[in-house]
Design a protein around this nucleic acid. Sequence first.
DNA 1: GAGAGGTATGACATCGGTGTCATGACATCG
DNA 2: CGATGTCATGACACCGATGTCATACCTCTC
Lengths: 363, 363
Amino acid sequence: MSTIYDVAKAAGVSPKTVSRVLNGDAPVKAETAKIVHAVIAELGYAPSSAARAMRSNKSGLIGLITGAISVDASQPDTTGLPDLFIVQGVQKAMETSGKTLLIADSGGRPDRVPGLMRTFEQHRVEGIIYVADHHRSVSLPPVSAQTRLVLANCYDDTGTPCILPHDRRGQEMLIADLIAKGHRRIAYLTLNAELDATRLRTQGYRDALSAAGISYDPELVIVAGIGTTDQDAEVQILWDAIDRILSLDVPPTVICFGNDQMAMRAYGILRSRGLNLPDDISVTGYDNYRTITQTLYPTLTSVELPYHAMGVRATQLLLRMIDDADDVPVAPVLVSGPVQSGQSVRTMPTPITKLTSIGRMTQ
Amino acid sequence: MSTIYDVAKAAGVSPKTVSRVLNGDAPVKAETAKIVHAVIAELGYAPSSAARAMRSNKSGLIGLITGAISVDASQPDTTGLPDLFIVQGVQKAMETSGKTLLIADSGGRPDRVPGLMRTFEQHRVEGIIYVADHHRSVSLPPVSAQTRLVLANCYDDTGTPCILPHDRRGQEMLIADLIAKGHRRIAYLTLNAELDATRLRTQGYRDALSAAGISYDPELVIVAGIGTTDQDAEVQILWDAIDRILSLDVPPTVICFGNDQMAMRAYGILRSRGLNLPDDISVTGYDNYRTITQTLYPTLTSVELPYHAMGVRATQLLLRMIDDADDVPVAPVLVSGPVQSGQSVRTMPTPITKLTSIGRMTQ
DNA sequence: GAGAGGTATGACATCGGTGTCATGACATCG
DNA sequence: CGATGTCATGACACCGATGTCATACCTCTC
């Protein structure tokens, strides 16, 4: 690769003048600039960012750590897909910043993270984004004082700035939507009870019921995920839970599942019991995993887990923090995703009295 | 961040001695080394790779370009997922190399690629991997002579080294597997006819038939993908194709679909026609998109699209090319994935004569 | 005991940019 | 017409590593 000296010599000027042409930080005669540009094009010269970084002490690099190849048991068959959407969001938001993204994968082994961070420090990254594969708490090694750090899809107990999915509101909006469609008996078959997502979404479920004046019935909420890679066991648990729900004295008109995959399995299970979707029973998922929600028949109502948006937000936050060291948020940034309506939810026939009153109201 | 001079001063030695301790390229008294290490730990010193890169002319960086956020119409709802598995493979294979991965996303716009390549050249990457979202031909801007380039999931007409999925053999193995399970009438509902994958897999389908002495019946092969984002249209095409296949005089015992999503849709369509899987009709997909194949009931037989392995191979190839500039493959590297057997394929009852003969053979 | 060879260390130049300062050629102004 | 200011450009140092060469000390050998 040619250097600025090669360009200078070929153009018959000093290296400094070439530098000025490149950076436009001082006046250069138009004719000189033209010659320099021609030489640059001819030689295919590109200024070395290593040399620039040394002089300016700014690398123009952002580091990103994922645990994508994670073997975390609680999300066995998504195998790290979700966090890749976050990475896409990060890339998208980085595009216009002029920074370049360094990426490293912990392979699901937390003990590797310090090494990756050290590599990033060697490259003098201006900031690091740590992406987790699902909403959870993490504990990271300390970084040098001038390296900014943002957590995406996770949080720690030292108050590091973080971007989290608004699980509570997501489930609340979904339930509110169901209530608006006339459902009153709403079952919720949750993921693994230990997950933050489960705790928060269950809270959101109760928020929505409470806002509509519907009393909470514990019989309608069952943990139906166990966090294992054993597919057969998962199916069994799900089958049992659905059995229990359907044999209640007053069965629900809709079953909400902890994620789209559970809902996808439920399609098969419910149909094998002779139930039609959504006429006999309505179903919802969570995550809006498009491959599932859009491809299933009928299309699945779900809640968007805003991974892409979280990546964008994390990046914007980090770039702001790099720009202004004091601009640090004090609380987690919660990002909501919309309810994605599919055809898996039936709008319940409304009692006459209500119908007429609604009819009047909308006129 | 502290420098090697800070360390040297604090340890009471010269910078060069610190360098020697770090690189172990010359003898250093054990006691001196101990002091230096202590100081390094205390200051949290990490050597600047920018400075190293300048001196050594080796950046230790590898560039990767994806088109992940691609809006390519032929794979509407996977939205760039597959190539992310390739990226995972690349990361995995890079782990032990000591190189660091620079990543950029073209956002599906080819006109951005030259700019991304220039950024990579500024960072003096030692090699570039270009990843496509599906098997196809590409045309990239030229790179500087000493930058190695490897294409993954795509090829060009200038003979750039490339890694491709072995679509032909994949489909062949699948069909051979079906034949081994006693199927003779095998339908194939393909993706969009313009795709390389369709052409190659159709060839593989014919290879397998031919190897088993089964004559090719064109009525059994229908293009059932159109390459649009219109989901309803896709479903309609698929529905029609299945109709045509099932109303043949001698209908097939198994239908192979162009990918797992088509197969997933077919589950619904076939069931709505009162057919049981796999008793009345067997079904296969392609891609082994685990979220689908493992979650569907019954689990779907598919062919692994070896994205992860392709990423690994691409990286290994690139690292070899960086190591030895002459070590360039002359032909595309084809990577096969195994047939992933699910419960969506029925083993056909074998005629008595054959059964006994097989029984004898295996004893 | 002088020279040879090994060990441990430091001085200095260099990689490719850019910040600082200096300089020469003009134009403008009082 | 000399002083001042602007434009255009170049010389030089510096960022943080490391390769080259030099040096001081020690041990071994003839």
